[in-house]
Simulated scan of single mutants.
Amino acid sequence: MKVLNMGSLNLDYVYTVDHILKGGETLASKKMEVFCGGKGLNQSIAMAKAGVPVFHAGLIGEEGEPLLAVCQENGVDTGYIQKIEGKSGHTIIQVDKEAQNCILLYGGSNRSFTKEYIDRVLEDFGEGDLLILQNEINLLDYVVDRAYDKNMVIILNPSPMDEALEAVDMGKISIFLMNEIEGAQIAGTENPEDVLAVMKEKFPQARVVLTLGRDGCIYQDSEKLCRQSAYEVKAVDTTAAGDTFTGYFIAGLLKGMEIEKILDMCARASAIAVSRKGAAASIPMMEEVIRASQK
């Protein structure tokens, strides 16, 4: 069984601010830092740090060499990553004194996928292989359709939520990994229990993980529902918390762990990530998570 992540690679420009800006407001930032990120890159690095051999497929622009380098440094297979003309994807991230963030995303090279490139990558994967997707690349519906035709296990983090997801046949998704905002937008209701009820009605065969920030997370499949509390830490930057959760969840699945143990591991890994600055750089190694569980 192989694991392919077809997703974004971004340069993150992170600004430390007193509070998140409102419309028309001007505010001086206290600090500006540059990190490698993108939901695709973060999730690939999280999987690699959790011990998962992962192939990443994606596109970088003219200034994207640091993105390629950080993947390689963290053990991600970069053989499918291609460099193209133009700018890489990037984000402008505000992080306030409560460690909450808001993110402005520019797609850049992440929005330059072609059907030919997608087909070429998927030629090397087949039935039972895992495909991890987010919504920071173009042609997401085409990727899902082709992967489904190949009987791959499709895992979707539907973020960011926009009209592109309307073209995706969600009935082809095996596992949904989403936060409370994404869940509410897909289900049309904010109450977590109602979100899960709608997801079960619409996609009865899919497994769903709904993360709830400080309130932990809920897992649901056709037979089981279980909850996991969040571990309390002093949060510094929540940027990669969800991506860390995703990487460790997939690692747990591949290890054949019980779902309750997987969720506990994910909660511990995410707690470590939010206690550090940055995206990819904040994601812990499996050894750190194991040590945390032994305290």
Results as ranks from 00 to 15, higher is better:
Ser88Arg: 07
Leu131Val: 08
Arg146Pro: 05
Lys150Gly: 08
Thr78Ser: 04
Gly126Lys: 09
Lys87Met: 14
Glu116Asn: 08
Glu85Lys: 14
Leu105His: 13
Gly126Glu: 10
Val121Gly: 08
Ser44Asp: 11
Asn101Met: 11
Cys71Phe: 02
Asp129Ser: 06
Phe125His: 06
His56Arg: 08
Gly64Met: 00
Asp96His: 06
Phe113Glu: 00
Ala99Thr: 13
Lys97Gln: 15
Ile155Asp: 07
Ile92Ser: 13
Ala69Tyr: 08
Lys87Val: 11
Ile118Tyr: 07
Tyr142Leu: 04
Met152Leu: 09
Gly126Phe: 04
Gln72Phe: 03
Phe113Leu: 15
Thr91Ile: 03
Gln43Gly: 05
Ser112Phe: 05
Ile132Phe: 13
Gln72Trp: 01
Asn42Lys: 09
Val52Trp: 11
Leu41Glu: 07
Glu123Leu: 13
Ala147Phe: 08
Val153Thr: 14
Asp145Phe: 05
Ala50Gly: 12
Gln72Ser: 15
Lys49Phe: 09
Lys49Arg: 15
Leu122Thr: 12
Gln43His: 04
Asp129Thr: 07
Asp145Ile: 04
Ala99Pro: 12
Val76Gln: 12
Gln134Pro: 07
Arg146Phe: 03
Phe125Val: 04
Asp141Ala: 15
Val54Asp: 07
Ala69Cys: 07
Gly61Ile: 04
Leu156Met: 10
Glu116Met: 02
Gln100Asn: 15
Lys115Phe: 07
Ile84Asn: 00
Ile60Leu: 01
Gly86Met: 01
Leu68Lys: 14
Tyr80Met: 01
Phe125Cys: 05
Pro66Met: 00
Gly64Lys: 00
Gly128Ile: 06
Val95Cys: 09
Asp141Arg: 03
Ile84Phe: 00
Ile84Glu: 00
Ile93Arg: 04
Asn74Arg: 08
Ile154Phe: 11
Lys150Tyr: 06
Glu62Gln: 12
Ser112Thr: 03
Val95Gly: 05
Arg111Lys: 14
Thr114Lys: 02
Val95His: 07
Gly64Asp: 01
Ala57Gln: 02
Gly58Leu: 01
Gly38Ser: 09
Glu127Thr: 13
Asn42Cys: 08
Ile81Thr: 01
Val70Pro: 02
Ser112Asn: 15
Gly75Lys: 03
Glu62Val: 15
Ser88Gln: 09
Ser112Arg: 15
Lys150His: 05
Asn138Tyr: 05
Asp129Met: 06
Ser109Cys: 00
Leu122Pro: 15
Val121Trp: 06
Gln94Asn: 13
Ile45Gly: 06
Cys71Gly: 01
